[in-house]
Amino acid sequence: MIETIRNIYCVGRNYRLHAEELGNAVPTMPFLFGKPTHSLVEANGQEVILPGNRGEVHHEAELVLHIARPYEQGMRMEDVIDQVALGIDFTLRDVQSDLKKKSHPWLRAKGFPNAALLTKFRPFESVEACTAQNFSLRKNGETVQDGNIQDMLFDIPTIVAFTAEHFGLGKGDVIYTGTPAGVGPVADGDSLELVYGEEVWGNCTITLRS
C-alpha cells in the first residue's frame, strides 16, 4: 500500500492544546506542509531507524486519510476517502526550531527517511465512525498521546476541501490530520504502539543512529 502513495500532506497545529504546548499561535485556517514519499515507513513491528545526531526527534501521532478519487466540491467524504490509518509525523524538533527562527521551510525537520510512519490501512466508514474512537500512542507501554478527531480545529471535510483547492487532491494521496497534545522525544530502544480504540494497529522499535 505504501508503494502506491503519491503525495503526503500534513496538517500542522490542528489541535489547540498541541499548538499551545509548543508555544505556537492557534491558526485561523488549515496550516499544511508536505513530506516526500521517501519518508514513508510501515509500522509492522520492525526496527525504525531515525537520526540520532540532529537533536531531539519528537513523535506526533495522527489519524491519516487515504484518498480514493479526485475531490470535487460538495462530494461526500465517504466518496473521497476509502481508507484510514494511524501514523506518526516524526519531527527533528531542534532543527525545526532553528528553521522557524530563520523563517525557512520545515522540510529538513519533517522530510528525512522514516519520518512518516504508517500502520496498515483500514476501511473508512464515515467521519462519525472515526469520532466514536479515540486514537493513542503508547511508548514503552505508557499512553503518551490520546486524541479524538472531534477536537480538531479544522474537521475532515474542511481539511479535504482546503487541500484540494490549494494543492490538488487525487487517488493515492494521504493526509496526516494533525496531532493532539503530548508530543515528546523518542529514545533509542523505545517501543511504540499506535492504538485505535483498544486495538493496536501498528508498532515498531526505535533505533537512533548517527
Score class of each variant (00 low, 15 high):
Thr28Asn: 14
Val127Gly: 04
His104Trp: 14
Phe124Asn: 02
Trp106Lys: 08
Ser39His: 04
Ile5Glu: 08
Gly55Cys: 05
Glu60Asp: 08
Ser97Ala: 15
Ala116Ile: 08
Gly197Ile: 01
Val48Asp: 02
Thr131Glu: 15
Ile81Gly: 00
Asn24Thr: 08
Asp173Cys: 04
His38Asp: 15
Gly172Ser: 02
Ile2Met: 14
Gly197Tyr: 06
Ala161Ser: 14
Gly34Cys: 14
Asp173Leu: 02
Val57Arg: 01
Val11Gln: 11
Glu165Lys: 13
Lys171Glu: 15
Glu20Met: 12
Met29Trp: 09
Val127Gln: 13
Val127Arg: 12
Gly202Cys: 05
Arg108Gln: 15
Arg122Lys: 14
Asp190Asn: 07
Gly52Arg: 07
Ala129His: 13
Ile67Gln: 06
Gly52Glu: 09
Met77Lys: 07
Glu20Asn: 04
Arg76Ala: 15
Val84Pro: 08
Phe31His: 13
Thr4Asp: 14
Asp188Pro: 00
Ala116Phe: 06
Cys130Arg: 00
Leu22Ser: 08
Asn14Met: 05
Ile206Thr: 02
Val26Ile: 12
Glu78Pro: 03
Glu3Met: 08
Arg93Glu: 11
Leu99Met: 11
Glu42Trp: 02
Met29Thr: 14
Arg122Met: 13
Leu17Ile: 01
Gly111Ile: 06
Ile49Tyr: 11
Val195Thr: 00
Phe112Glu: 09
Glu128Asn: 12
Pro27Ser: 10
Arg69Cys: 12
Gly197Thr: 01
Ile175Phe: 03
Asp98Ile: 11
Ala25Thr: 14
Glu193Trp: 02
Gly168Tyr: 04
Ile159Thr: 02
Arg16Leu: 09
Pro30Asn: 06
Thr143Asn: 01
Gly178Ser: 01
Ala187Ser: 13
Thr158Val: 13
His166Lys: 14
Phe112Gln: 07
Phe33Ala: 10
Glu60Asn: 05
Leu92Trp: 11
Gly12Glu: 09
Arg69Tyr: 04
Gln83Glu: 13
His166Ile: 05
Tyr196Lys: 05
Gln150Glu: 14
Asn53Pro: 00
Leu50Asn: 06
Arg13Met: 12
Gly172His: 01
Arg13Asn: 10
Glu56Gly: 06
Leu17Asp: 15
Gly189Asn: 03
Val26Asp: 11
Leu117Ile: 12
Ile8Gly: 06
Thr179Glu: 02
Leu169Gly: 01
Ala129Val: 07
Met77Glu: 13
Lys101Cys: 09
Lys35Phe: 05
Ile81Pro: 03
Phe121Ser: 04
Cys10Tyr: 10
Gly178Lys: 03
Gly197Asn: 03
Ala181Trp: 02
Glu78Val: 10
Ala109Cys: 09
Glu125Met: 12
Val11His: 08
Met77Val: 11
Trp106His: 11
